[in-house]
């Protein structure tokens, strides 16, 4: 299920403004890759190009190549809707649909693709997805309650369940814990460890301990200078990045924050 992502020579623009310059990287399947870097360095923008979500922003476009296994997601006859079915996303702010129950939230994406899902198949999928998101035991008695009635951390796990119910091969997470308390954060990190058995996971985080804890590989992004586009500075094994980074910039960033 998990797939490899191959990015080569990717530039991202907002209108005339070049936001991210010339990124090439390989993201391994069944692993967690963390993107770190200061605010505004383009890591979230770059993350969103991996499932073409950046196109939601008017004027945003990308040049270059992104292969997910063999599928060129910027290929001429590739529909972004198809790409997003393959590459799911979890956002900084938990965003369950407020008018829907927990059950309907989980099933919402899966219903789009197969309208005529039998009741039992839907029940199974909801249970499987919620178990996968370590949420089943907490909500199994109140699946009909609104998704917004859960705590922030539970809502975020609900969003993860909703994303995995579509059966993607890649899961993108854009600062999924930055609005959560430490205990909820821990629950999500445990979940990420479990999810990487089945998915390719890419996570943007501002929390470097988190990157160190959850990721196998880490990519450091930085601005080339004020008003200049963001660039990929260095990417490597997380253990090596946090102990012996090759570039001075990476070391400054990491030690500055840990200092």
């Amino acid at each position: 299920m998990a797939k490899r992502i191959d990015v080569s020579g990717l530039h991202v623009y907002y209108g005339d403004f070049l936001a991210v310059e010339d990124v090439s990287m390989t993201i391994e399947p069944r692993s967690v890759t963390a993107f770190i870097g200061s605010s505004g360095c383009g890591k979230s923008t770059f993350l969103r190009t991996l499932n073409r979500m950046h196109e939601v922003t008017p004027g945003a476009y990308a040049q270059g190549k992104v292969l997910i296994d063999d599928m060129d997601i910027y290929g001429p006859d590739i529909d972004p809707v198809t790409v997003r079915g393959q590459v799911g996303m979890v956002f900084q702010k938990a965003n369950p649909f407020p008018t829907m129950s927990i059950y309907d939230n989980v099933i919402a994406g899966a219903r789009l693709n197969s309208r005529r899902m039998s009741r039992s198949a839907a029940d199974d999928l909801v249970e499987e997805s919620l178990r996968g998101a370590n949420l089943w035991e907490e909500v199994k008695d109140r699946l009909g309650k609104p998704g917004a009635s859960l705590s922030g951390g539970q809502q975020q796990r609900l969003c993860i369940a909703r994303a995995t119910a579509v059966k993607p091969s890649v899961l993108l997470m854009d600062e999924p814990c930055s609005a959560l308390d430490p205990i909820s954060t821990l629950a999500i990190e445990d979940l990420i460890h479990k999810l990487k058995e089945d998915y390719t996971i890419v996570i943007v985080t501002h929390n470097m301990q988190q990157a160190a804890r959850v990721s196998d590989r880490t990519a450091f992004f930085n601005l080339a200078g004020p008003g200049k586009p963001g660039k990929l500075i260095e990417m490597g094994e997380t253990s090596q990045m946090f102990t012996r980074p090759e570039k001075k910039e990476t070391e400054n960033y990491i030690t500055g924050r840990f200092g």
Binding site: N95, P96, C159
Partner: peptide, 15 residues
């Protein structure tokens, strides 16, 4: 409509 809700739908492959 909050952008988060719209992106949530789009991100799971909604047209």
């Amino acid at each position: 409509v909050p952008q988060g809700h719209r992106e949530a739908a789009l991100a799971m492959g909604a047209t």
